[in-house]
Design a protein around this nucleic acid. Structure first.
Length: 551
RNA sequence: GCCCCCGUAGCUCAGGGGAUAGAGCGCUACCCUCCGGAGGUAGAAGCGCAGGUUCGAAUCCUGCCGGGGGCACCA
C-alpha cells in the first residue's frame, strides 16, 4: 500500500510526502451485516482511509487520490477488486491469496504470530514485587497474570526479557512483620501497627519448628525476621509458580543496602548536582524533572528513605545492561510515577523510554454479586490461593488478562468457575478443543491431516471469515506488545478467532457422514482447522492459559 | 485542594481520528445427529453532560457531574 503511494508520488501523480506507514485495516462493520438499511456497499476484506488523509496535502479531492491509488493497486495479483467508496479504498483479496493464510499458519506452526518489532531490545520487566509480609493478594495477582503475559508478548516480538521480582526485605514494615511473628509465637496479641491474620501464627510456628530455640536467642526478633521473611518469600514464590509465573531474578532490596549500591547511586547523583542538604536530610531535586516536590533520599536520622532503594535498584538494572526497564505498579502506587520518572531523568536517562511505569487499576472479586472486602488488620485478605481455589489457574489468569489494566474490574467468581459458555475462557478453550477434536476424529477415520492442500477451495464465507481472522494474529501480537496491552490478544481470540471457528464449524462440515465418500473439501478444511488450532494455541500460550486437547 | 484511572446495551467488558460503535451474559424468536450441543442464526437495546479542534470524535483538548485510587524525612 505504501509502495503504491510512493510509486504515485514518484510518477508525479501525487505531490505529497510519502507517509511513514499506511494503515490498512479490516473494515469495522462486516459487509454481510447490512440487510434493510441503505448504503449497503460491500467493504472488502481490507480497507484504508489513506486517500482521505492525503487529500489535503495533495491538493486533490479524496476521490481523486483514491482513484490514482486504485489504478496502481489493481495491477496487484493478490487483489481481485479495488473499490473506491467515499474516499475509502476497499480491497478485495483474490480467493487464492486468502487461502494461503492457512498454509502460512501451518508452515509457521508455533512461531506463527511472532514478529521482530522489538528485536535487539533488552527489557527488564518488574512485576508483582509484593511485600514479604503476607500472602500475595489479589492486586498483586493481576500483575502476575498481566506481567507474565506481557513478558511473553515482548518475547514474541523479539525482545530479550528478564522477569524480575523486587523483594522489599528491608525497612520498617519488615520490623513490624517480625514483631508480629514474635508476638504470635509468645502468645501476645498482634502489635497495634502489626499484621494480623491466621498466616502470622502459621509462619511463627514454622519459624519455631525450624529454629526451636528461637525465643531463647539473644535477639529473638531478628531470628523471626530472618527466618520468617525467608519463609514468606518461599510461600509467595511457590504460589506464583503454581499460577504459572516464574521469575528470572528475585532481587532482594537488602542486597542494595548491604553492597553499598545505595551509597554509589547517591554519590553519582551528588556528582551530577542533583542532591542538596536541607533540615539535616539529603534531598533529590526531583522537581527539576516534573515531580510535585523534592524527595528525601537520606533521612535526617541517617537512615535511607525508601526511594534510595529505588535509585540504587534502577541504576543496578541499567548497569546490568537493560535498556528498557518496565515496572508494573498498582493504582495505590500511582503517586510514585512522577518521582520515578524524575529519578530516571536525574540519572541522565530518558523517561518513558529507559523507564516505563505501568499503572494497573484495582480488582474486585465478587461472590453472589457482593464484593469480597478485605482488611489487613482482620486478616481477611483475598489471596492468590483464594482466586485459584475458586476458579482455577486458567480462568483466573484469563479473567485478569482480558481487560485493560486502565479499568477497574470486577471478577464474578461464580461466573468464572462455571463450566459453560458464559465463561469466556471456556468459550476460547472450547474452540481450541474442538479444533483438536476434529483433527483427532479425522485421524480415526483414516484421513491424514496434511501440511498442504488445495486451499483455493476455501471460498465459503465462513472459511473466508476465519482465514481473515487468522491472518490478523501477527499484527494483534505486535500491537499488544507495543502498547503493553495483553488484553488485546484475549479479545482477539475470543471475539474473532473462536467466534469465526464456531461459525465455520456450524456451516462447513468436514468429515463424511455415515458412508459418504470423503469430500474434496475435507482436506483443505482440515488444514484450516489445523491453522485455527495453531492460532488458538499460540494465543492462549501468550496469555499463560492452557489449550487442552480435550475438555 | 492537587495528581492518576474510569464513566459505552439491563449486567460484565472491547473499541490506537474514519464508513452503519462491537462481543458475552440476560431478554425475544428460530435452527442444528461431523466433536462430550459448553453450539449457531435473527431481533430489541448504548458512547455521563456541555463546549472546542477536525473533512470526520466513543477516541484528541477544556470545563462540569459521577465512581475508584493517590498526595510522608511510611515502606
Amino acid at each position: 500500500m505504501r509502495a503504491a503511494v510512493a510509486a504515485a508520488v514518484h510518477a508525479g501523480e501525487l505531490s505529497v510526502a510519502v507517509p511513514e506507514s499506511v494503515v490498512v485495516e479490516r473494515p469495522k462493520a462486516p459487509p454481510h451485516k447490512d440487510k434493510s438499511k441503505p448504503a449497503p456497499q460491500a467493504r472488502g476484506d481490507y480497507a484504508t482511509s489513506i486517500a482521505l488523509r492525503l487529500a489535503k496535502p495533495a491538493g486533490k479531492s479524496p476521490v481523486e487520490v483514491a482513484e490514482i491509488l486504485a489504478a496502481r493497486l489493481r495491477s496487484l495479483p493478490d487483489l481481485s477488486e479495488v473499490e473506491v467508496a467515499n474516499g475509502f479504498l476497499n480491497l478485495f483479496l483474490a480467493e487464492a491469496a486468502l487461502g494461503r493464510v492457512a498454509l502460512d499458519v501451518v508452515a509457521a506452526g508455533r512461531s506463527y504470530g511472532t514478529n521482530d518489532a522489538a528485536a535487539g531490545q533488552t527489557v527488564n520487566l518488574e512485576f508483582v514485587s509484593a511485600n514479604p509480609t503476607g500472602p500475595i493478594h489479589i492486586g498483586g495477582v493481576r500483575w502476575a497474570a498481566v506481567g507474565d503475559a506481557l513478558a511473553r508478548l515482548l518475547e514474541a516480538s523479539g525482545a530479550k526479557v528478564t522477569r524480575e521480582y523486587y523483594f522489599n526485605d528491608h525497612g520498617a514494615q519488615i520490623d513490624r512483620f517480625a514483631r508480629s511473628l514474635l508476638a504470635a509465637a509468645t502468645g501476645q496479641p498482634a502489635p497495634e501497627d502489626g499484621y494480623g491474620g491466621a498466616y502470622i501464627g502459621e509462619i511463627a510456628q514454622a519459624v519455631l519448628a525450624e529454629v526451636p530455640d528461637a525465643l531463647e536467642q539473644d535477639d529473638p526478633q531478628e531470628v523471626f525476621r530472618r527466618v520468617g521473611v525467608q519463609r514468606m518469600f518461599q510461600e509467595i514464590r511457590a504460589s506464583l509458580h503454581d499460577f504459572g509465573v516464574d521469575f528470572d531474578v528475585y532481587f532482594h532490596e537488602n542486597t542494595l543496602h548491604e553492597s553499598g549500591a545505595v551509597q554509589r547511586a547517591v554519590d553519582r547523583l551528588k556528582a551530577a548536582g542533583q542532591m542538596y542538604d536541607k533540615d539535616g536530610a539529603l534531598w533529590l531535586r526531583t522537581t527539576e524533572f516534573g515531580d510535585d516536590k523534592d524527595r528525601v533520599v537520606i533521612k535526617s536520622d541517617g537512615e535511607p528513605a525508601y526511594i534510595s532503594g529505588d535509585l540504587a535498584y534502577y541504576l543496578d538494572k541499567r548497569e546490568r545492561g537493560f535498556d528498557r526497564c518496565i515496572i508494573m505498579l498498582g493504582a495505590d502506587h500511582s503517586g510514585y510515577v512522577g518521582r520515578l520518572m524524575a529519578m530516571c531523568a536525574a540519572f541522565g536517562d530518558t523517561p518513558h523510554v529507559n523507564l516505563e511505569v505501568l499503572i494497573g487499576q484495582l480488582v474486585n472479586l465478587l461472590r453472589d454479586g457482593e464484593p469480597l472486602r478485605m482488611s489487613k488488620r482482620a486478616g481477611t485478605v483475598v489471596t492468590l490461593e483464594d482466586l485459584v481455589d475458586a476458579v482455577g489457574v486458567d480462568a483466573g489468569r484469563y479473567a485478569l488478562v482480558r481487560s485493560s489494566t486502565d479499568s477497574q474490574i470486577d471478577i464474578d467468581l461464580d461466573l468464572w468457575s462455571r463450566r459453560t459458555s458464559d465463561n469466556p475462557v471456556f468459550y476460547v478453550q472450547y474452540a481450541a478443543t474442538r479444533a483438536a477434536s476434529v483433527l483427532r476424529h479425522a485421524k480415526d477415520l483414516g484421513i491424514d491431516v496434511p501440511d498442504t492442500a488445495d486451499v483455493s477451495l476455501l471460498t465459503h464465507p465462513r472459511e473466508s471469515e476465519l482465514l481473515l481472522a487468522l491472518a490478523e494474529f501477527p499484527r494483534v501480537v505486535a500491537t499488544a506488545a507495543e502498547l503493553r496491552e495483553p488484553h488485546r490478544v484475549a479479545r482477539y481470540l475470543e471475539e474473532k478467532v473462536a467466534k469465526a471457528a464456531q461459525r465455520f464449524w456450524d456451516d462447513c462440515h468436514v468429515l463424511p457422514k455415515g458412508d459418504e465418500p470423503v469430500s474434496e473439501l475435507a482436506v483443505p478444511r482440515l488444514l484450516l482447522w489445523r491453522a485455527t488450532r495453531t492460532v488458538l494455541e499460540n494465543g492462549l500460550v501468550l496469555l499463560g492459559v492452557s489449550a487442552p486437547e480435550r475438555m
